[in-house]
Nucleic acid binder design. Structure first.
Length: 641
RNA sequence: GCUGGAAUAGCUCAGUCGGUAGAGCACUUCACUCGUAAUGAAGGGGUCGUCGGUUCAAGUCCGAUUUCCAGCUCCA
């Protein structure tokens, strides 16, 4: 028996089979429960037996759509429970999201945490009832009348925005009916494991001018084990929170006197400087020169660059000698002035000018978040000026450089291409050319990417690099932005081989993005246990008692002479106590020294890494650690604390 | 910025009905001189985020404000 699947693939089976068994085959023996199925375009029961030449569309929880259908059904179950418990509640929207679902609700008395427990209990009942989901349609007019009668103003508003002749799709389960395009599960009983996770405010239709509704978030899985795994992951994420670890490890601090302005502490500064050293070295090797432009520049410059028009609400300004100045929110205008300061020949191009530029942006108070969202940060910026023929190669070069950076830290990543936004400058032709330039380079590299329509910068399209950390979260860091506006506004030129003046093309690009934010991501990625080359303290010397302090100092001196960042614990504490503290500070190597070591001239090594325990000649240890640092090696941490 | 919550010692937190503030860790001192994740004892440390109000009396009740947390909006 042959069956054609939605994606066009054809599967062959020896005998006629029920949809649910085919679903199990498709999910490669994972025996995941199919969430919904369409047979020859009709939604059907999973037990339906499929006959020859059928066209089958199966959604399993392993696919994005299937997960969506699952979460969406969970959202309906929650709405149903809410309406049962609090019939006066008005329903807004309840979509599925990456890890679950939410529903926006409007009720005179705001929901409180205790309500969530009651709602969960009612949801459990609905799941147990095993209500079948059924789809039906109404005309637009009937649909509006239906929700007017039910006194659901938000649903009425949603339908009113749909075209006149639209067929409005509904799903019902038991006494509950909701406006919904689907797809959904066949029955509420499939939603075996769920939890309502939080309560928050959210604007109706995401517009801050509209009324704020109550949003209830939840997560749902086909199996309890999967829910537990998710909740465990959230716990893990909390333990890795860079704000907590930043304080515990003495890396950085925040204080009331400077909301959103991080203070770097000595250990954090070592980490930051190590990253910057790496950055400078890498860029030098890749043909970049380094520049530095002022933090405060005249308003005229920002008007010329377009930032004043597009961005002044987020810029810090000041008056100097009766003239307006602004603190830079970006480095590019300064970079333009550097380029313009002398004439250029095509032979100078591409000109790659890097700048570790400190920028300030007045972010809204509610947007601040540790090092992830700050009001002042260092961009590892660079502006590349080039001829049109060089676009592809340069973009490819930058993409390779970004790949090298992320790979070094063990990040996987994915790429997104963002196109022209509504509020933008420049002609259609320029945007077309710029966008195709980026697309072409990505295609040349064979990089897969997703397109975000309308998500570009106001001056040009961009390629964003989203890296994935050790617990699966993604962060946008690197970006390559092609800019055809800035060279024009600043009248940049170079002399071509033909002796004529030409306008260079420019790209802005960052790899880390913001050094501060990248440090935050590194802290969470490594849970504070940095690879040795990044660790603020690489080796801690732990003398057993006062008597071996001198030998400890000698060991310390040798480590330091070898360029290893080392400390010694000279306190009159037991060895167990010193080890515990060094362990909690996530120091890669501990050297225990006592009578035995002093006599034989060895050190006893203890480390976070596997297979490093035991006694070693000091010289051998130093050699191994130096090699590890120079190779920027990431070693597997034996056990998490 | 918006909605909701929080703020008590360096950190984590307790503090009942309004009656003048408490623990553990950290810190200091002393004793112990120790072999792989917390030695014992003693001591110092707080205008209870800030300003105002109610009260005989405010950490506690009320208002404003600042900062933080969750989410929304925003992130060129």
């Amino acid at each position: 028996m042959k069956i054609t699947l939605k994606d066009g693939s054809v599967m062959e089976f020896a005998q006629e089979m029920a949809i649910i068994d085919i679903a199990k085959e498709i999910s490669e023996g994972l025996a995941r429960v199919a969430t919904s199925a369409k047979l020859n375009g009709e939604i059907t029961d999973l037990r339906t037996v499929v006959k020859e030449d059928a066209e089958l569309e199966i959604l399993t929880f392993d696919s994005e759509d299937g997960k969506g259908a699952f979460h969406h059904t969970a959202a309906h179950i929650m709405a149903q429970a809410v309406k049962r418990l609090y019939p006066e509640t008005k329903l807004a929207i309840g979509p599925s999201i990456a890890n679950g679902f939410y529903y926006d609700l409007d009720r005179e008395t705001p929901f409180v945490a205790e309500d969530l427990e009651k709602i969960e209990a009612e949801m459990k009942k609905i799941v147990k009832e095993g209500l079948a989901l059924e789809q039906f349609t109404k005309s637009r007019e009937d649909a509006i009348a239906y929700f007017k009668e039910k006194e659901e103003p938000y649903k009425v508003e949603l339908i009113e925005d749909l075209p006149e002749d639209a067929e409005i799709s509904f799903y019902s389960q038991g006494e509950f009916t909701d406006l919904c395009a689907g797809p959904h599960l066949m029955s509420t009983k499939t939603v075996k494991a769920f939890k309502l996770t939080s309560l928050a405010g959210a604007y109706w239709r995401g517009d801050e001018k509209n009324k704020m509704l109550t949003r209830i978030y939840g997560v749902a899985y086909p199996k309890k084990a999967e829910l537990d795994e998710y909740l465990h992951m959230m716990e893990e994420a909390k333990k890795r929170d860079h704000r907590k670890l930043g304080r515990e490890l003495g890396l950085f601090m925040m204080c009331d006197e400077g909301p959103g302005f991080p203070f770097f502490l000595p250990k954090g500064m070592v980490l930051k400087n190590t990253l910057l050293e790496y950055w400078r070295d890498l860029h030098k090797k890749n043909g970049y020169v380094e520049i530095n432009t002022p933090i405060i520049l005249s308003r005229h410059l920002w008007e010329n660059s377009g930032h004043w028009d597009h961005y002044k609400d987020n810029m810090y300004t000041t008056v100097i000698d009766d003239e307006d100045f602004a603190v830079k929110p970006m480095n590019c205008p300064g970079g333009m002035l550097v380029y313009k300061s002398e004439p250029h020949s095509y032979k100078d191009l591409p000109l790659r000018a890097g700048e570790l530029g400190l920028v300030h942006r007045h972010e809204k108070s509610g947007a601040l978040h540790g090092l992830f969202r700050v009001r002042c940060f260092t961009q590892d910026d660079a502006h590349i000026f080039m001829t049109p023929e060089q676009i592809r190669d340069e973009i490819k070069g930058v993409a390779r450089l970004i790949d090298e950076v992320y790979s070094l830290f063990g990040f996987k990543y994915h790429v997104e291409l963002s196109t022209r936004p509504e509020d933008s400058m420049g002609s259609d032709e320029d945007w077309e050319l710029a966008t195709e330039g980026l697309r072409g380079a990505l295609d040349d590299l064979g990089l897969e990417y997703v397109v975000n329509e309308g998500d570009g910068a106001f001056y040009g399209p961009k390629i964003d690099f989203h890296l994935e950390d050790s617990i699966g979260r993604t962060w946008q860091c690197g970006t390559i932005q092609l800019d055809m506006q800035m060279p024009q506004r600043f009248e940049l030129e170079y002399t071509g081989a033909d002796g004529e003046k030409h306008r260079p093309i420019m790209i802005h690009r960052v790899a880390f993005g913001s050094i501060e934010r990248f440090i935050g991501i590194l802290i969470e990625h490594f849970a504070g246990a940095f690879p040795t080359w990044l660790a603020p303290v690489q080796v801690k010397v732990l003398p057993i008692s006062d008597k071996y302090m001198d030998y400890g100092q000698k060991v310390l001196a040798e480590l330091e002479a070898a360029g290893i960042r080392a400390e010694i614990d000279t306190r009159a504490e037991k060895i167990g106590y010193k080890i515990r503290e060094a362990q909690m500070n996530k120091i890669p190597y501990m050297l225990v020294v006592g009578a035995k070591e002093e006599e034989t001239g060895v050190v006893s090594v203890r480390s976070r890494f596997a297979g490093d325990e035991g006694q070693k000649e000091l010289a051998d240890f130093i050699c191994a650690v130096k090699e590890e640092i120079e190779g920027k090696v990431i070693r597997q941490v034996e056990k998490e604390d």
